[in-house]
Structure formats: structure tokens, C-alpha cells
Design a protein around this nucleic acid. Sequence first.
RNA 1: GCCCCUGUAGCUCAGUGGUAGAGCGUGACAUUGGUAAUGUCAAGGCCAUGGGUUCAAUCCCCAUCGGGGGCUCCA
Length: 621
Amino acid sequence: MRTASRPALGLSCRSHGIIESEHGARYPPDPPGARGGQRTDHCRREASGLMPPPLDELRHTAAHVLAYAAQDLYPEAKPTIGPAIENGFYYDFERAEPFTPSDLAALERRMHEIVAADYEMTGEQVTREAAVRHFAQNPFKVELAEAIPQGEPITLYTIGGFTDLCRGGHAKSTGAIGAVKLMSVAGAYWRGDERNPMLQRIYGTAWPTHAELEAYLLQLEEAQKRDHRKLGAELGLFSIEEDAGGGLVFWHPKGAIVRGIIENFIREGLLARGYLPVVTPHIMSEKVYERSGHLENYAHGIFGPLEVEGQRFRLKPMNCPGHILIYKSEGRSYRELPLRYAEFGTVYRFERSGTLHGLTRVRGFTQDDAHLFCMPEQLQAEFEQTADEAIRLITAFGFRDVEYFVGTRDDAVRVASDEVGEVAIRKALESRGLPYDVDAGGGAFYGPKLDINVHDAIGRRWQLGTVQIDFMLPERFELTYRGSDGADHRPVMIHRALAGSLERFFGVLIEHYGGAFPAWLAPVQVVVAPISEHQLGYATTVRDRLRAAGFRAEVDEKSDKLGYKIRHWKTQKVPYILVTGRAEAEAGTVAPNERGHDEKRPPITVDAFVAELRDRITRKL
RNA sequence: GCCCCUGUAGCUCAGUGGUAGAGCGUGACAUUGGUAAUGUCAAGGCCAUGGGUUCAAUCCCCAUCGGGGGCUCCA
């Protein structure tokens, strides 16, 4: 069993933190295809015994080239660290003046010269004292040199006139870098700690050939086209209103329709598996969260108190305490268990303004949340059916690649019951033949968990659902059930959100499908387009028949020409446009124009079209 | 929150130290059309907000607010 410290390969994406928002920060933030802030995962690579790919060496070398260029052009800039990352590299500099876009251009020009000069990369081992002396003017490098563990070699690497403290792993010479481009400049704290000084991070990308660089830039463009914020506005799905504040989502009619479909799909699954709907308040007395431990463990994520008649209330950051109160409201018998309470529970969590991002990082969102209260001996079966339901969901929404991460609790806080939970999770996955990685210490504050990540259509990874086992909250709230032995026992809880947050899930779906939702999800499934206003009446009849059949259909009533209408609705990514001209009106047919197909289709009867679309919706295509 | 960039019409963007333009979209009119943009006209902007510099600020400076890109994992 290899151990990945955390998911990090690929373009992974910011997590809401589904139940454990603080965990979200552990995931590498993702510029979905944007600037290149991804990382390589050395842990995993080393653990799996693979040699680092040459690309890493090339990019690490490119980082040196950048530092060399900076030394030449901005000698006052102190280089700190500059690793290779997924898709490129970065180098952090300490410098009073900000690097401007024109500075980047100048640096890039100098880098090209350094690459063209094809300097050989030479390394030498030195003593700690020599290293410290060499970097006497650079406290960051001195700190690094002094931190190298006793017994490990300390090495300096040189290209041309630039020497850097470096562990090594380079291309033989700078000429190996076929194509290099600086992407952006960003602030970054020294060693990632916000108590440390802010450095300037320059991001770049490097490739063996120009063609590969071009392909990469094209890929970035593709990702930008799918950006859910852009598509959300273009397709009228949602907005975030300055007047209301950041991180708060307004679902417009078309987005709300998609949300309703998602909710219905989830609800069907819940009913089929014996869940019971509940609804809980959005604000509750702060005491509830004191007792649950959220106020203690998660204070930074909870909005401040609202004082009413001397009582302090809090906006709901989690749904579990509410569900627990329902459980606790009456005596429970073992005959009732498992009790499965489900709610599309809207929660509010404080996220720092700089971290907000479209639908994927927000302050108010709705989870497809549920809490299962069961006897310990039911835990395994309950966990397994939850895993099955997660798979049903992911599959239905078109995700093919799924990764599972088992988050264990830190050794420091780990108790015997955690072991039980971890075993249950592993057993569930193993019995289904699902491969997984262990995220050591990545569990919730109350227990171990399973995180489900999916890859979208262009390969980016997103964190969606989570299933968490909890022995702690039942303890804190002193939950019991009367057993068959007549004694009181403590139930185990499973927290689970499979889509995660509907906001985030929607954002991921938008990007996954590039806005072109399959017919069963599309907010408008059919637009009936009369060729002239003479067919308006017929078109309306067709629309009404489609609506009667349960479809989401509209008529394009404007007096635009057909070509215009086709273009308009294609850009709106409507699955079907039904052309209705004189011939169709007379014959009682429609001429379908299907999204993704440019060829003309012969007219078919409305009934035939209804059958076609119905079949497609059934198959979720 | 912190760093960098940014804010002109609903959207995408031009522009100037002397109070503004285009395209798309929207509306009206004409046109009644056959598979990715018909034409004409019109409406629409306190140039994010608040200060400052100046005879004069959308433009320069500062602040605030919003938007974008980032913010441990190694020399």
C-alpha cells in the first residue's frame, strides 16, 4: 500500500471542504488550467519507485535559468527557492520593488539568451560553512543551508555566472530547455507561512520543444473556455452579486432547473435506500456548536454570533448538530436503527475574501447531506451502501475516472475507534475492488473519512463527496439507543455528502460538460424555431406537446432568420433545435437540428421526436 | 487576510488632463426567411466609490469596494 500524503497529481482543485472545510486548504489550489500553480508529488513518485521524468529536471533547470536572469537584471532580488511543479516551475524572490509584466518580458528575453548559450550545469559538494559563506548576502539561502540535516551532502550548482544552493536533479545544460515562457507573478509567503515575509513568485512553464509549449498554451485556452464563471454568465446559469457580497450564489432560472434535476436524482437514491428527509434551522443557538466541538475545532470557519435577547446564535456551518438534535428528541430503540436523516442543508462558512472562487469556493452552499445513526455492527453495511450510492451518482453525471482517498486521523488524536472506522472504509473499498490512497492525518476532527475525487472531461481533478465515520459526536451529545438487552448503547454516526456542495458540484459539471449539458440535464432541452412568423402558431403547438410530454421546450418567437436562430441556440448549447417551416407545419413534422451535429436531418413526426428525446433522457445522454 | 494585476454601456473592449466611442446584446420599424450573424434607426454610461493634485480629472496620486491570478511540501 503506497502512501500519498495527499492528492496532488494533475490539476487538482480547491475543495470546499465538504464537511471539513479546514481540510480544504490542504489541497493544492487549482488554477483550473490557468496559471500553473500545480505541484509535482515527490512523495508519491518516490514511494512508487519511479524515476522523476526528465521534464521535472528540465523545469528545475529552467528555474535556475530564471534566477540567473534575475541576478543579471535585478541583482538586488534575492533568490529563495525554485522548484519544478506540474506543468512548469516557479522561483520565489525577495525584492522590495514588485516585478511588473515588462520585467517578466525582460527576464524572459534574458532567459532565452541563457538557454541559447547552453551553459553546462555543474555541481560541487561543499561544507555547510562554505555554503553559508557563499550566500552570506542572502538570509533565505543561509536558512536553507543551515536547515539541511547533518550528514546529507550540501551541493552548489552553477550555470554560467550563477551558482545556486540546490539538491540537484537537472538537465545537463541550459540548452535542453526547448521552450520556456514566464506566466505570471504572484505573492507567496516564505515557506508558505503567512507569518513570514511575502515573497514574489514568478511562475513559468518549460518544455522540450516549442510545439509542446504551444500545445500546453492551447490546453490552457481550452480550460478557459470551460470556466464555469464565464459559462455561468453566458448561459444564464448563476451570478454572484457585488451588492450581496462575495461567495454568495444567485441561481438564475436555468441554473436552478439544473439544480432541481440534480436534487431529484439524489432524492430518488435516498428514498430507495431508506433515508428519511429532515429540515433543520439555518441559525441555532451557539451552544449547539459548543457542544459539537465545531466552535472549538472550526471557529475560523463560522460566522460571528448574532445576539438576540441575550442569546448568541450562529449561522449553521454544518448540518450534523441539527440532525443529532432530531435523533435526541426522543428515546431510540435498536429496532429503529439505522436511522438515516437526509437534508439539502444550506450552510454558511467564512472563507477569506482572497480565496473565493466562482462556485467552487463560496461562503454559502447547500450540501446533499445525510447523517446515519447505526449500531456498531451495522457500520460496515451502512458504509458500503453509501459508497455504492456515491458511485451511482458519479457515474450518472458522466465522470469516468474516480480516485478514493482514505483520510486517517493524526496519531496524536487517534483513538481505538478510529481504527475500527478505517478498517470499515478499507474493507468497503477493497470488497468493491476500488483502489485508494491513504491521506495520513487527513481525517475529520472526529474520525476517519473517505474522500471521492473525480477527473473531468479534460483531466482535471475535483474533490466532490466525502463519507466520514464518527464515534465522537454521539459521545459529545450522549446519544443512546435502547438495545435488545435492555441497556442503553451508543450509536455510531456516518456523515456523508456525495455531491458535496451543490454549488461546487454544479461548477464542476459546467466545466466537465463545457456548458453543453446532456439532454437530461439541459435547462432548455428543445427550442422550436419557426422559419417565419407564419409558423408561429404551429411552433407553439409543437412546444406545448413537448411540454405535455414532460420536456423543457421553448419557442423562438423572434423575427430573426433561421441561420441566426440556429447560431444563437447553438451557442446557448441547447441539445435540440426543431426547425418548423411551411413544409413541417403542413405535414405535422419537425426538422431536428442536434447539438454537435452539423448535418441536416430530415423532418420527423413530433411523436417520433418525443420518443427519441425520451429515450435519450432515459439513457442520460 | 496578504502580494501582484485590474475596474469605461447588459457583455467584450477602444479612448483622451478640456465631462466619451465601437462591436455584440436590447427596443422599434422594414423584411417573412430553409440550418452558425438581414437591414435601418433608437435607447443605453456620475467612465466602481470617496478623497487629493490641477484653472480643469474618466485619465495623475491615495484610500475603499469589486473582479482576476496566486499564497508549505524543500536548498
